[in-house]
């Protein structure tokens, strides 16, 4: 799937999904991010990798954290950055996604960072843009959020570098989560020992085990011997759709508390893509515990996004572009 995101020589051209990317590519993204983490500690927090390039953040869904880290990442790479909040812009005036894109393309943007409520939106845009333009998926529907997954595995690798020996549990609304899908692909590509999903059946997609995960409906059972716990955000709409009775019951059954955390391995890491609903997905005592790496995830987001943007741009120079068409 998605050979569209690689050049004929197997280099990164767009970053749309983790699925189908070779393990070497993921390792190379992680290594590049590692080398870029020191940029934040310099007095001048910039490297010239994207100098003279224009990056447009095209967000059709509201986002603060992801958009901000993409913006910071682009700026630290010396790119010019345009922030376009599409949810309040052209598409609400009836302009089609394609027309919006054509207009921005005419302004010679080199890279679009796209977030959209529809699965496949980033693929669609990648199929439509000129050959020298790169697309980075910042979340499409329920499909993929590959930079989030990469920053999560980056965070895990910094603490527990041997993926083969790890058991990772993803807890919560897997069904509607692009983050979970990308995490599962990333963890499996990196040959993680065991990947588990823990949720009630109403929050799991059909045939979820075909993604390469072990399914648990009981949090207590699923947490046994786990090295990494990834909690997902619960959207309020789930209660209206009849998928859950109440936040109260969810917290009782699937909320992470200090007592439950004790079921996992003593050094288990707690992660969350944010923003946290305290008292719904986890207690404050867990969110703020020494085992929590939630804030670390956020700062790693910048390095990962710098790595992905610079790699995609490197292999997408206009003079080399014609070979990249598929």
């Amino acid at each position: 799937m998605s050979s569209i995101q690689l050049t004929p020589t197997g280099k990164l051209r767009h970053f749309l999904t983790i699925e189908g990317l070779p393990r070497d590519m993921l390792v190379s993204i992680l290594d590049t991010a590692e080398s870029l983490t020191s940029v934040k500690d310099r007095s001048i927090k910039k490297v010239p990798l994207l100098r003279g390039k224009t990056v447009a953040n095209l967000f059709f869904e509201p986002s603060t954290r992801t958009r901000t880290t993409f913006e910071l990442a682009a700026k630290r790479l010396s790119a010019d950055v345009l922030n376009i909040a599409m949810s309040t812009s052209a598409t609400t005036k009836g302009e089609s996604l394609l027309d919006t894109l054509r207009n921005l393309e005419a302004m010679h943007v080199d890279m679009f960072v796209v977030r959209h409520a529809q699965s496949g939106a980033a693929h669609f845009i990648a199929q439509q843009v000129a050959p020298h333009v790169s697309i980075v998926n910042a979340g499409d529907g329920r499909h993929a959020h590959p930079t989030q997954a990469m920053l999560d595995v980056f965070t895990i690798r910094r603490h527990k570098p041997d993926f083969g020996g790890l058991t990772v549990a993803i807890v919560g609304d897997i069904r509607h989560s692009r983050v979970a899908r990308s995490q599962i692909h990333a963890l499996n590509t990196l040959l993680t020992g065991e990947v588990r999903v823990i949720a009630p059946q109403t929050l799991l997609p059909a045939d979820v085990e075909t993604l390469g995960v072990k399914v648990f409906h009981s949090l207590d059972e699923g947490l046994r011997d786990v090295d990494v716990i990834i909690m997902l955000r619960l959207q309020r709409e789930r209660m209206q759709g009849g998928r859950l009775p109440s936040e109260h019951e969810y917290y009782q059954q699937y909320g992470m508390t200090t007592e439950r955390l004790a079921i996992a391995k003593p050094d288990a890491m707690i992660m969350h893509p944010g923003p946290i609903n305290r008292g719904v997905e986890m207690s404050s005592s867990v969110a703020d515990s020494p085992q929590s790496v939630i804030l670390e995830q956020v700062s790693h987001g910048i390095a990962i996004r710098m790595a992905v943007m610079s790699m995609a741009m490197q292999h997408n120079q206009p003079d080399k572009a014609p070979q990249a068409a598929t």
């Binding site: 499909h143 059909a206 045939d207």
Partner: peptide, 15 residues
């Protein structure tokens, strides 16, 4: 179709 392909692609399924 609600099944493994839709699950992978994150598309809402029709069972």
């Amino acid at each position: 179709h609600e099944g493994q392909v839709a699950t992978r692609m994150g598309l809402p399924g029709i069972p």
